[in-house]
Amino acid sequence: MEEEVELCFPQLLNSSCKKPKRPQLQLVATFMVLSSITLLTTTLNLLVIVSISHFKQLHTPTNLLLLSLAVSDFFVGIFTSFQMLLIDGCWYLGDFMCVVYQYLSYIVTSASIGTMVMISVDRYVAICDPLRYTAKVTYRRVQLSVSVCWIFSTVLQTLLLWRNLERPGRFVSCSGECVVGIDYVSGLLDVLLSFIGPVAVIVLLYLRVFVVAASQARAMRSHVASVTLQGSVTVTVRKSEMKAARTLGVVVVVFLICLCPYFCVTLTGQDALLNPSSVAFVTCLFYFNSCLNPIIYAFLYPWFRKCLRLIVTLQILQPDSSEANVL
C-alpha cells in the first residue's frame, strides 16, 4: 500500500504542492534556530538604532553608517521570521505576499551589504589617510552616501523582480510554493553588484589597511627607544589603528563565512541537489550575519555598553538624557 502524500492545501488536490518529507527533529531544530536568530537580530540592532539616534555625542559620520547597517539588519531579522513559515516546505500567505516578502528582503539585504562596503571605505580612509579624514568624510557626505545606497538597492531589486511584481505567482508551479524568477542576464548583474563586487572591494581595502598597519608596527618598533611625549601620543594612535585593523579582519572573515556558502549554493543551482538540512544550514548562516554585525561593530565599542546601561535602567527617559556623556 502506497504511503499517503501530504499536501500543503488538501482542498486543492490538483494544484497543491506536496509537503517535503523531513524528520520532526529537523523541523523543531530549524524553528528554534530561526526563532533565536530573529529575536537576537531584532533586539541587538534595535538597541544600536536607539543608542545612535538618541545620544547626540554619537551623531558622527561613522556612527551614521552603523545606524544604516543596524536598520537594514533589523529588517533582515524581521524577515527571518517569515522564513519560519517555510519550515514545513509550504507558503500559506499567497502569491502577492510571497513577492512582497522576497522583494523587501532583497532590498534590505542588498542595503546591508552596501553599507558594509561604505564602512570599509570609511575605515580605510581613517587608517590610511587620517590627516584628511575629517575633510573627506563629512556628515553630509555620509548622509548622501547612505541615501544613495538605499535608493540604489530599491531600484536594482525593482528592476530585477519587475516581472514578479507585475504578476505575482508568475513562476509558481503549484499552490504553496514561494519562488521568484529572473532571467540569466539580470541574475548575472545581481551577482556582480550584490556579491562579487562588494566582496572584492572589501577584501582589497582591508588588504591595503593591513599593509599600512604592518608598516606602522615596524615604524613603532624601530622608534620605540626614542619615544618623546609627542611620540607616545603617536604610538597610542597607531595602537588604536592596529586594533581597528584586527577588528576589520574579524569582520571580513565573518562576512565571507556567512555569505559565501549561500551565494555559492544559489548561484550554481546546487540548492536543488543538496538535502534539506544543508539548505537550511546555509540559509540560517546567511541570516545569522545580520545578528553578528551589531556585535562586531557596536559591542566592541565602550560607548555602546554605556548606552546599553542607560537604556536598560530607563535613564534614557529622563530629561536631557540625549546630552549624556557616553564617550
Rank of each mutant, 00 (worst) to 15 (best):
F9A: 07
P10D: 11
P23W: 05
Q24W: 10
V28Q: 10
T30V: 09
F31W: 15
S35W: 10
S36R: 02
T42A: 03
S51Q: 04
S51H: 04
L58K: 08
N63A: 09
L64R: 11
G77R: 07
F79L: 13
L85M: 09
I87Q: 01
C90A: 07
D95C: 07
C98R: 03
C98M: 00
V99G: 06
V100Q: 12
L104D: 11
S105L: 14
A111W: 10
V121M: 00
R123H: 09
A126H: 10
L131M: 08
L131D: 12
R132F: 08
R132H: 15
R140T: 15
L144F: 15
F152T: 09
L161D: 06
L161P: 02
W162P: 01
W162Q: 01
N164W: 03
L165P: 01
R167S: 15
R170C: 12
S175H: 13
G176V: 01
G176R: 02
C178W: 04
G187S: 08
F195P: 03
P198T: 12
V212K: 15
S215W: 02
M220R: 08
M220T: 06
S226F: 09
Q230I: 03
K243V: 12
T247W: 00
G249N: 10
I257F: 07
C260R: 05
Y262S: 04
V265K: 00
V279R: 03
V282D: 01
C284H: 05
L285T: 06
C291Y: 04
I295W: 02
I295D: 03
I296S: 08
F299H: 10
L300R: 15
L300K: 14
K306H: 02
C307L: 09
Q318Y: 11
P319I: 07
